[in-house]
Design a protein around this nucleic acid. Sequence first.
DNA 1: CCTACCGATCGGTAGG
DNA 2: CCTACCGATCGGTAGG
Lengths: 225, 225
Amino acid sequence: MAEKASGAPYHPLGHVTGSTKYQQVVEAAAQLFADRGYRGTSMRDIADAVGLHAPSLYNRVHSKADVLRAIIDSALDGLVDAQFQAISSTPDVELQLRRAVEAKVLFQAQHPHFIRVLALEVHHLDEQPRGVVTDRIAQYEDSWLALINRGCASGHFRVASVELLVPTLLSMGTQSAAQSALNLSMAQVAYHFGDMAMRLVEPAGIPGRGSTDVDPGASDISRSA
Amino acid sequence: MAEKASGAPYHPLGHVTGSTKYQQVVEAAAQLFADRGYRGTSMRDIADAVGLHAPSLYNRVHSKADVLRAIIDSALDGLVDAQFQAISSTPDVELQLRRAVEAKVLFQAQHPHFIRVLALEVHHLDEQPRGVVTDRIAQYEDSWLALINRGCASGHFRVASVELLVPTLLSMGTQSAAQSALNLSMAQVAYHFGDMAMRLVEPAGIPGRGSTDVDPGASDISRSA
DNA sequence: CCTACCGATCGGTAGG
DNA sequence: CCTACCGATCGGTAGG
């Protein structure tokens, strides 16, 4: 899926602090894009970060856009893989959800720069590769939707709106800044988010309120503007 | 707080489709920054959007960075105001939380471009104004933390980690794309998110699991990388 | 609010 | 993997 220019072999999840120069370039770019944005980072910035001059970068990559594409593909590879492993690890839908959230939160904590670029910079891709990426993102979100729907169908989950729940689950643990300030391990953070997810799907619902009926007028607040 | 160059009066929440040319500039810039990013948008783009030539923009604003600052201030004004109104509307901490979530989700749905710029482009501000903005964001987040802590102290809420809950609450309804595809009104969407928030704080916890003890090893999943 | 224009920086190429 | 350099575009100014 991702492309490269020279002989460096591509490895989907190989950004565990890369050994090849290509991986070093992609990782340095991910950190810079995450900090300053895609348009706020020049090829000279990336070259400096890996100890090269800007024109020499083009022996490793085809273009700046290809570097962005490699980062986004890598991030998506990790998320999709984590989701696949969580779901295939057990037939228990509750355990699937808990493990899916934990695996996602852990991957996000381990690769915050890639995740941030995926979340913020997709719109800088050209139309064609952007379509491929957004299709893949849609597939990934559908796998979460299907997981929740399975749990609802089997009676293990009860949820007012699957379409509003899934984005909430997907946003969990996205801001790694606050987490690192806590005295919790990544595994503990992941576990807490798993707990929150289970709360959001539990069939018991909210005590003191019998159903999940929609009654928007019950607590409206008069707005100023 | 926000600045302007000419005689246009500044109005904190005045971006209800602006009447003055200054407001038109800020709103057009918000939409462009949200779509293409701050660095991906030129002053010429903004000028085109309001029917001016680029140099004429400087009769309305001091610089491109000032436009970004005005957008971010406006978004923060709206969030802070919504939070203040929700909390001061009732002494009931549960109702405070529900209304705070609803008001926040509603404001986000009404001003998606301003919210997106606030979330994505703060790092393009110069160090001094960025410090002011990040301080204000921290204050805003603290008001959520205090709200949850009040509920926990009074026994109305029970939560495993306030520090991990608050970011989850703050991320609710941030992606307005999925919401608009649903056949729900903004008020209904807000109500659903309010429900989710109440689920996350309810003292009953998760049935079938007695406590909120941390036991990260219970459901670990072997990772590939 | 316009035309004309500036210095700086950008992604990328030439040629070795 | 380097030096030298290109056309394009940027934020912003001059001067009226």
